[in-house]
């Protein structure tokens, strides 16, 4: 038996909304330690990795007697989650050898209980081993700032060059009709931590990435006030949104490499 009771349905709604356009079918791997999801987009350029820890406060109850994989169509899941109120408590439930995933939405005042079942799918996806490495550069910034940068620069071109150096980070785009550049200076003196821009630098990095994917990742902006970008030359960028009281959502994007 698997049963996970999440205090805020809005968290799961935001996660699925941010994934469903790039990652349409995905396996939720459930174990006693929590729920993980790893999936590649259809072109195998981007990868997402979600981790929701069972021992964090976001789960009121969590039970998973044996490891199970729940193959779900995320577009369908998003439709089901739209039936939940933002303040509803949501329970996910499945048997040990499941064909069905059950969603139970309890309203805050206890007057409304909704139950939806969806059929599970057999999804043949290969898990990739993501090495736990140290990156040359980690930039932390307000998540809405990163969203704005991606949105602004995507008006002019398809790829952004991210240039991390000791003063800060530069984002540049060069298209056929024009070019643009946004310079963010390190700023760790502002009062609120979530408004700070910080750059941890071991080595400078200059790398290009497809804006289409970065813009898609920023659909997760409402999950977190901050986002971190981890870069090493000639390796995928990691865009991480912490999820309070649950864990994190990470996106990996393969770089564009000079031919």
């Amino acid at each position: 038996m698997f049963e996970a009771k999440m205090l805020q349905s809005s968290v799961l709604k935001k996660i699925i909304e941010s994934l469903k356009d790039l990652f349409s079918d995905a396996n939720f791997d459930c174990s006693s330690s929590g729920i993980t999801l790893q999936d590649m987009d259809s072109s195998h350029v981007a990868l997402c990795y979600l981790k929701l820890r069972s021992d964090e406060e976001g789960f009121e109850d969590y039970r998973c007697d044996r490891n199970i994989t729940l193959g779900v169509n995320l577009v369908l899941m998003s439709k089901i989650l739209k039936c939940a109120g933002n303040d509803d408590v949501i329970t996910l439930r499945a048997e040990d050898e499941p064909n069905i995933l059950t969603f139970i939405f309890d309203s805050k005042n206890g007057e409304r209980v909704s139950k939806y079942d969806i059929k599970l799918m057999e999804i043949d996806s290969e898990l990739l081993g993501i090495p736990d490495t140290e990156y040359s550069c980690v930039v932390k910034m307000p998540s809405h700032e990163f969203q704005r940068i991606c949105s602004n620069l995507s008006q002019l071109g398809d790829s952004v060059t991210v240039d991390c150096h000791k003063e800060g980070v530069d984002f540049k785009v060069a298209g056929e009709q024009g070019s643009g550049a946004i310079k963010l200076k390190q700023n760790t003196t502002v009062d609120k931590e979530e408004d700070q821009v910080s750059v941890e630098l071991n080595e400078a990095v200059t790398q290009s990435f497809a804006l289409k994917f970065l813009c898609a990742f920023t659909k997760a902006t409402s999950l977190s006030d901050t986002v971190s970008l981890s870069l090493t030359q000639d390796t995928p960028i990691v865009v991480e949104y912490p999820i309070a009281q649950h864990g994190y959502l990470r996106f990996y994007l393969a770089p564009k490499i000079e031919e």
């Binding site: 590649m40 195998h44 350029v45 981007a46 990868l47 290969e126 898990l127 990739l128 081993g129 993501i130 090495p131 790829s159 290009s208 497809a210 390796t235 995928p236 990996y252 994007l253 393969a254 770089p255 564009k256 490499i257 000079e258 031919e259």
Partner: peptide
């Protein structure tokens, strides 16, 4: 021109 890399080039299949 830049060539788009593939994520499977960087992370091995388990």
């Amino acid at each position: 021109t830049n060539k788009q890399g593939n994520i499977t080039e960087f992370f091995r299949k388990q």
